[in-house]
């Protein structure tokens, strides 16, 4: 177990660095979109501030909402640490989910709304949403959609 310790620490460090990079990149792109778009309402860059949250609780219970989101992120972080420690998933998966959700939480905490700017069809999202989505998709694809690892060795098949 002790021989795996340095490897686990390196994976954890890299995951923390990736999560921090997601937060920085998301905040930078939100700022850039605000500055570059000039308040336009058409095209791929449409900066909007979106206060909405689950169950329509946004306006009345913002502190509660922020607390709930922080608790959710902490839960994902705890599961992420356990999952990477058991080699169940690569470290970049929880890093993307945690980084993306933290950045949106930061928006809610500081501005009272999430800044969205990327118009895709009728949706307006941001880089943090894409990071969370990529983490969820990565978790499913690398772990759950993977074919079974046990393949029969040629010439050693069991015939009954």
């Amino acid at each position: 177990v002790t021989t795996h310790q340095p490897i686990r620490q390196a994976v954890r460090r890299r995951s923390i660095a990736l999560a921090a990079s997601v937060v920085l990149a998301d905040q930078a792109t939100k700022l850039a979109a605000d500055l570059l778009s000039g308040g336009q309402r058409h095209g791929p860059l449409v900066p909007v501030r979106n206060p909405r949250f689950s169950l329509g609780l946004a306006a009345t219970t913002r502190p509660l909402m922020v607390l709930a989101m922080a608790a959710g992120i902490a839960l994902v972080a705890a599961h992420g640490v356990r999952a990477t420690g058991r080699n169940a998933v690569p470290g970049w998966i929880p890093a993307l989910v945690i980084g993306g959700s933290l950045s949106n939480l930061l928006d809610r905490l500081l501005l009272g709304a999430v800044r969205d700017f990327l118009a895709i069809g009728h949706l307006v999202i941001n880089l943090a949403d894409l990071a969370v989505l990529a983490g969820v998709a990565g978790c499913y694809l690398t772990r759950l959609a993977r074919p079974p690892a046990t393949t029969p060795i040629p010439g050693r098949e069991v015939h009954q």
Binding site: R52, H79, R82, V89, I125, V132, L133, R143
Partner: peptide, 30 residues
């Protein structure tokens, strides 16, 4: 047993991540 624990941990992580995605992004997108 180890494989089962790994799978269970991954499923828990996926469920938590999905919950975060739905709670955080869903209401803003739809």
């Amino acid at each position: 047993m180890t494989k089962l624990r790994q799978l269970a941990t991954a499923v828990m992580l996926l469920a938590g991540s999905l919950a975060v995605l739905v709670a955080e992004t869903g209401p803003r997108a739809f």
